[in-house]
């Protein structure tokens, strides 16, 4: 991908945690915050620095839902499919968004790297079901129409910025 890796930044993160093996998950979280995903080179670099085998790091990075080994879009839309949201019809929202953005179960990010659509098991905002989040901002009581409206607004705002 086009991300240039600045190892100085990774070093800063590692230094903050003192290369402690137990800090691996926290380190990966911070790295992901920096790059929006976990580039392979960085994972190998971290493994060598922390003295953890690469296979192990790969194992941890692929175990947790929050880590992505592929770049994500500028806007990450998460559709909550917890029980409460599910019984309040969250799947139609997911389907509508996928259709709007030309995505599917396997293709989660738009080609222009603007949107990533994924599901999340429960955001704990069940009282507001169904909810979605866009870059961690919670949008309560969603409908397919309202979700598409949000996407259109974001597109429009970005177009104006350009």
């Amino acid at each position: 991908m086009n991300t240039t890796i600045i190892y100085g930044k990774v070093d800063q993160i590692l230094n903050r945690y003192g290369n402690k093996k137990s800090a691996l998950i926290a380190v990966l979280q911070e790295v992901q915050k920096e790059y929006h995903y976990l580039p392979q080179e960085v994972l190998s670099y971290i493994g060598d620095k922390m003295g953890i085998s690469r296979a192990r790091i790969f194992g941890v990075a692929t175990f947790y839902e929050n880590f992505s080994l592929e770049p994500k879009g500028k806007y990450v839309i998460k559709i909550c499919d917890g029980t409460a949201c599910h019984v309040k019809k969250s799947i139609p929202i997911l389907n509508a968004l996928r259709k709007e953005l030309g995505l599917n179960e396997n293709k989660r990010t738009t080609d222009d790297m603007m949107f990533t659509v994924e599901t999340v098991s429960c955001l704990g905002a069940c009282g507001l079901a169904p909810v979605i989040t866009i870059n961690d901002k919670v949008y309560p009581k969603m409908t397919p129409e309202a979700a598409i409206r949000l996407v259109k607004e974001i597109r429009e705002a970005n177009r104006l910025e350009d």
Binding site: S53, A55, R56, F58, G59
Partner: peptide, 26 residues
């Protein structure tokens, strides 16, 4: 050595090398 490890989880779990590279390259 730890060349092999578990990756992914649930029914997608795999025993594999780092980044699923061929054995000869790890």
């Amino acid at each position: 050595i730890g060349v092999l490890g578990f990756a992914y989880r649930g029914s997608k779990i795999k025993v594999t090398t780092a980044f699923e590279r061929p054995i000869a390259e790890v």
